[in-house]
């Protein structure tokens, strides 16, 4: 195939393909990725990615995709299985409605990260924009996770119905950990924040609690995984000082109606 360089990492015997994405439209790029997967490649390295949307969209395969460059919107939307690593920033819509898999961004990410995601993990090394984790939900043993190394913008975890969001606040700037309207309409799941935040930042459907023993164990495990995958040093982060946001009700709008 054009622009594909084959290689294999012999220690693990993984079939790796490298693909030069420069100047290729997303449709063609995704077609190439699909056909490489069909030919049995287990790892695909995309070089020179520059804003192509929908990379990994709808893929249900157990494949690893490494992206060198900045992928466009809706990275890994509807995906169900793959592991994607971005060695740069990502744009909006990372992991939109994803069902399983892992997305690692070694940089910043834009707005609407993990919208409606049902399972899998998203690790963003630096900051995320507005509307992260809106309407995340868990289902049976599926529990979606988003860990943000930096800070998050407004509407974090709005309408959240399940899953775990962690914000570490390790950004270089001194802005607040989260924006306004955090957890508005939240009715399931949990948001962990590395430090106490002002109540004025919260939606009226959530309350602040101190992280307990189970939380700390869970956070330690997630932090280790996060650090391993993003390369960010989390040694200064102490889960014991974390707070968690929980919904006050699983049915925040149960009393809105008369019959």
């Amino acid at each position: 195939m054009d622009g594909v360089r084959q290689a294999s990492r012999s220690e693990e015997e993984v079939k790796v393909a490298e693909l030069d994405a420069r100047g290729i439209h997303y449709k063609e790029l995704n077609e190439k990725i699909r056909s490489l997967i069909e030919s049995g490649y287990e790892e695909i390295v995309l070089n020179g990615v520059n804003g192509q949307r929908y990379i990994g969209d709808g893929l249900v395969h157990n494949v690893r995709i490494v992206i060198n460059g900045v992928p466009g919107n809706d990275l890994g939307a509807f995906m169900d299985g793959p592991r994607i690593v971005v060695n740069d920033n990502a744009q909006d819509g990372v992991g939109n409605t994803m069902n399983s898999g892992v997305i690692v961004v070694r940089g910043h990410a834009g707005d609407v990260i993990g919208y409606g995601m049902r399972s899998g993990k998203i690790f963003i090394r630096d900051d995320v924009g507005y509307r992260t984790g809106i309407h995340m939900k868990s289902y049976r043993e599926q529990v979606p996770v988003i860990v943000v190394g930096g800070r998050a913008g407004d509407f974090l975890g709005e309408y959240m119905a399940g899953g775990i969001i962690v914000v570490l606040g390790l950004s270089s700037d001194s802005k607040d950990l989260v924006g306004h309207y955090t957890g508005t309409g939240m009715h399931g799941g949990v948001i962990y924040l590395a430090e106490e935040i002002d109540e004025s930042k919260l939606g009226s459907e959530v309350r602040i609690f101190q992280a307990d023993k189970t939380d700390i164990e869970r956070l330690n495990a997630l932090l280790a995984e996060f650090s391993d995958l993003t390369g960010l040093d989390v040694s200064k982060v102490d889960p014991r000082s974390f707070v968690k946001l929980l919904p006050v009700s699983h049915r925040p709008y149960g009393n809105m109606y008369v019959y």
Binding site: D92, G93, N96, V112, Y115, R131, I134, H135, K137, S138, Y139, R140, F155, E158, Y159, A161, G162, G185, H187, G188, H250, R251, P252, Y253, G254
Partner: peptide, 15 residues
Amino acid sequence: IPQGTDALSPAPHHD
């Protein structure tokens, strides 16, 4: 979604 929780559809698609 889990049994017994309200299924809330947000007014807009947030994307």
